[in-house]
Design a binder for these strands. Structure first.
Length: 888
DNA sequence: TCCGATCCGTAC
DNA sequence: GACGTACGGATCGGAA
């Protein structure tokens, strides 16, 4: 039988190795976790691969050691521990604790001394010792029973391997005494490296013998050095010699790995958001799960109603036949009042052998007053979806008090997803049943209505339960991050307003769109045949690949920039080619018309709702990095306006008969916010005076009177003004303006000379990002900038530009959200029937009955302009017309 | 047949 | 590589 095996892990050495091996890893709050993760993985690998009988992790102690006492320069060349590693050390110690492993640390000594002591004792007791380290200093303790293991290089060092390098393990210190160790700042003897040292020790046996027989050294220079630095060599020997007689017990019970403390590990891994590790070591998945029951009988339903009526608030979730809440049908509802208990109320399951379900109309009628009661708090994940489903089922949702998705969006801006599954994994360490596991995927996908009720309960009731638990975890996070007010006063009410807007939708003139499509179609055909003719044969113009082949191979036109897979055919390249080549001009026209037709005039009419006759976009409130909304299905925030052809599409956005479209947009909102936030007096004054801001900027940058500013100068100034908001570079500006980089740099320098506070503001933003890994907006919203410390210059540059852009763009998002709420409140208070239909970042669009026009004009302008009080005026331009184009 | 990657282009 | 934020259509190639 082989001897029991003891593994001694050089914790300190592995912490550094883990830190550098895994460069980027942090949790959603921006806390660095790379070393923790790397260390844990390494630890688990050793435990699994080696299955030690005994194990200990050994750490360096903080503060001075006896070595620094005898030689203050010892390790003095070491750089300080990286800033983001420092806070990971206590976490790593918690990992060791959590796995119930022995840990050693000894004031005044290094990990190596402890290892040497333990190894010697263990070896004496007949244990087989493996020292897990990447450090060669430990080679001196190798013997027949003690070896080193470098898991990262997967290399083991026994007496043979050490002998090869140093002669034998007991010669290691002799060699190092002469050669020194640059990484520990051990001096050794000048002019003698490891090779020479080994030769000398081979010859003389040890340091003292060598020093006593220096006359036998032939090389005068070497002899002189050895004479002169003899004491330094002796000192070096003391420094590298490990202490192996510390007063430590070798207690086999302590060294036996225990059962992991799952609770402690769960807490730790949750904090670090290590999903894989959580899955493996979380304390008890059952603790998250709960008892779920189906509501199938009258009695069950009455009981549920009683609980809901008695509760101050409840959590609910809807199940439907699909993801289109205004078209798909309600299949069931789940509820949770307290964590760990949930009900599923099936209403529309439809499969062979389905049990009778409660009468849908009756049930909904009983539930309606609860959902509509603003005093009865409701919690729901992505509540807008459920509110729309309820609306479609004839119910109104009021009294929304919490939405984990929105809370997470604010409190954990760095999180990859604010979806329920991801949050459950990261915040609860729990993996809920996936929708796919219930309904299948691909062609096997069935509707939720076809899912057996028994199975549906486990999925649906779980969702309500998890949502409630997430709310409990996220609510304090909102407080901690100072965003509770933003959540309660802005995001949550906004979600209800967005629900209203989505329900309202916007009217589209389908015939008009069809007419445009026809017109575009004809032009496209003509363009296509022209292009084919010039190309000398047919090909798919819409295929960048084929187009590239035609332009650059068949026609041998000059190539521009590259894409990852070939030569670019984008608008910039084509514009250049268009100077000399008709085909490029045709392609440009083709491209823009194909875009308009495919993306807008063909696509939009298809999305008209059968009943309302309108388009109901989806406003997403938790996707952007800055707090802006986004719009999808369809995206109504990128309807063309810049080109004449494109603008015509807006003529198809029309009001109901008797109404007009009213559009109100903030003028220069981001630049104004920048001036305010940077407290840039000059820029603020320019806005206060009400003059043309780009003209004024041009006057400043080019040093002329405003009336002397040429169109060219104004155009440049405009580009700079925009560039500043985006974190400009000379390269970018040069490209934008088609000028030299040097000239662009001069413009930028001129700009910052005239507006010095802007520069200071940018620096402040980057500093804030570096300190917190996020930046903040006027309302205290946090925007994550996780890669601000990246070692990769390009990535870091990107993060720095974000750090500048986010506060400005995010504050603009804050502002218009406030404005939306204020305007809607006024509309409601004045009992107007005007309806807010669209938000496009700095613009609000309303459908206004003719009789309310004048009131709305002033109301909207007033509320928008006073939504925030800044050091400079906010200006809103209001337009009205019989379609969106005219209103603009 | 579906899905994802790629390229391109629309908005603010 | 190089000026921020989104969404989506068409193509294309690989997987089911």
């Amino acid at each position: 039988m082989s001897s029991p095996r003891l593994y001694l892990i050089d914790g300190s050495s592995y912490i550094y190795r883990a830190y550098y091996a895994i460069r980027h890893l942090s949790n959603s709050r921006g806390m660095a976790t790379n070393a923790v993760y790397g260390f844990t993985s390494m630890l688990l690998k050793i435990i699994r691969d080696e299955q030690p009988d005994y194990l200990a992790v050994v750490f360096d102690s903080r503060g001075p050691t006896f070595r620094t006492e005898i030689y203050p320069e010892y390790k003095a060349n070491r750089a300080a521990m990286p800033e983001d590693l420092v806070p990971q050390i206590p976490l790593i110690k918690r990992v060791v604790q959590g796995f119930r492993l022995a840990a050693f640390e000894e004031p005044g000594y290094e990990a190596d001394d402890i290892i040497a002591t333990l190894a010697r004792k263990a070896s004496a007791e007949g244990l087989e010792v493996t020292v897990v380290t990447g450090d060669k200093d430990l080679m001196q303790i190798v013997d027949e029973r003690v070896s080193l293991l470098d898991t990262m290089k997967d290399k083991r060092f026994g007496p043979a391997e050490v002998g090869e390098r140093f002669g034998s393990p007991d010669k290691v210190v002799e060699v190092q005494a002469l050669a020194g160790d640059s990484s520990d700042n051990v001096p050794g003897v000048p002019g003698i490296g490891e090779k020479t040292a080994k030769l000398l020790i081979d010859q003389f046996g040890d340091l003292e013998s060598l020093l006593s027989r220096l006359d036998q050294i032939r090389q005068p220079k070497r002899r002189a050095n050895l004479e002169q630095f003899a004491d330094q060599a002796r000192l070096s020997r003391r420094l590298v010699t490990l202490v192996d007689d510390l007063p430590l017990e070798l207690d086999r019970e302590v060294l036996t790995p225990g059962e992991p403390d799952r609770e402690q590990l769960t807490e730790l891994f949750r904090e670090c958001e290590f999903q894989r590790l959580l899955d493996e070591f979380s304390s008890d998945p059952q603790a998250v799960a709960g008892s779920y029951r189906a509501v199938l009988s009258e009695a069950d339903f009455e009981q549920l109603l009683q609980r809901l009526e008695a509760a101050e608030r409840f959590c609910f979730d809807t199940e439907t036949t699909g993801l289109d809440p205004l078209r798909d049908e309600l299949v069931g509802l789940s509820f949770a009042v307290e964590a760990g208990q949930a009900w599923y109320l099936p209403l529309g399951h439809y499969y062979l052998g389905a049990p009778p379900q409660l009468d849908r109309e009756l049930v909904l009628k009983r539930l309606a007053p609860l959902f509509a009661d603003p005093e009865k708090g409701k919690i729901a994940q992505n509540a807008k979806f459920d509110a729309l489903v309820l609306h479609h089922a004839g119910l109104t949702l009021e009294g929304l008090v919490f939405d984990p998705m929105l809370a997470s969006y604010l409190a954990r801006p760095a999180a990859k997803s604010h979806g329920m599954d991801a949050m459950a994994a990261e915040l609860l360490g729990y993996r809920p049943i996936k929708f796919e596991e219930v309904c299948g995927k691909g062609k096997n996908r069935i509707s939720f209505a076809e899912v057996e009720i028994e199975r549906a309960v486990t999925y649906a009731a779980e969702d309500a339960n998890i949502t409630l638990r997430l709310a409990e975890i996220l609510a304090p996070l909102l407080e901690e991050t100072g965003q509770e007010k933003l959540f309660r006063e802005v995001e949550l009410p906004l979600e209800q307003l967005l629900t209203r807007m989505e329900i309202t939708g916007v009217r589209i003139d389908a015939d008009f769109m069809a007419g445009l499509s026809r017109e575009f179609s004809d032009k496209l055909q003509a363009l296509e045949s022209g292009i084919h003719q010039l190309a000398g044969g047919p090909f798919n113009v819409a295929s960048p690949k084929q187009l590239g082949e035609v332009l650059f191979e068949r026609l041998k036109l000059p190539k521009g920039k590259k894409t990852r897979t070939g030569w670019s055919t984008d608008v910039e390249v084509l514009n250049k080619l268009a100077e000399d080549h008709e085909i490029a001009r045709l392609i440009l026209d083709y491209r823009s018309l194909a875009k308009l037709k495919g993306t807008y005039t063909d696509a939009l009419p298809k999305l008209i709702h059968e009943e309302s006759g309108r388009i109901h976009t989806s406003f997403n409130q938790a996707v952007t990095a800055t707090g802006r909304l986004s719009s999808s299905d369809p995206n109504l925030q990128n309807i063309p306006i810049r080109s004449e052809e494109g603008r015509r599409i807006r003529e198809g956005f029309i009001p109901e008969p008797g109404c007009l479209m009213l559009s109100a947009d903030y003028s220069q909102v981001e630049l104004r916010l920048l001036a305010h936030m940077a407290e840039e007096t000059t820029l603020k004054e320019h806005f206060c005076s009400g003059e043309d801001i780009h003209r004024r900027t041009a006057a400043e940058v080019f040093g002329v009177f405003p009336e002397m500013v040429s169109d060219e100068m104004r155009r440049s100034a405009k580009a700079i003004n925009f560039g500043v908001i985006y974190g400009i570079s000379a390269f970018g500006l040069a490209k934008q303006l088609g000028i030299g980089r040097k000239e662009a740099q001069e413009y930028i320098d001129g700009y910052f000379a005239r507006y010095p506070k802007i520069r200071a503001f940018m620096d402040k933003c980057i500093a804030e990002a570096k300190e917190h890994k996020y930046v903040t907006t006027l309302l205290g919203r946090r925007c994550a900038v996780p890669e601000i410390d990246s070692k990769n210059g390009a990535i870091r540059g990107y993060a720095e530009r974000n750090a500048i852009n986010y506060p400005v763009q995010g504050s603009a998002a804050d502002l218009i959200k406030l404005a939306m709420l204020r305007v809607q409140r006024r509309i409601d208070a004045e009992e107007l029937s005007s309806r807010m239909v669209l938000q496009v970042h700095d613009e609000l669009v309303f459908e206004v009955p003719e009789g309310e026009l004048e009131e709305m004009r002033t109301l909207v302008k007033e509320e928008m302009e006073t939504a925030l009080e800044l050091d400079l005026p906010l200006v809103v331009d209001v337009g009205v017309g019989k379609n969106w184009r005219e209103a603009h």
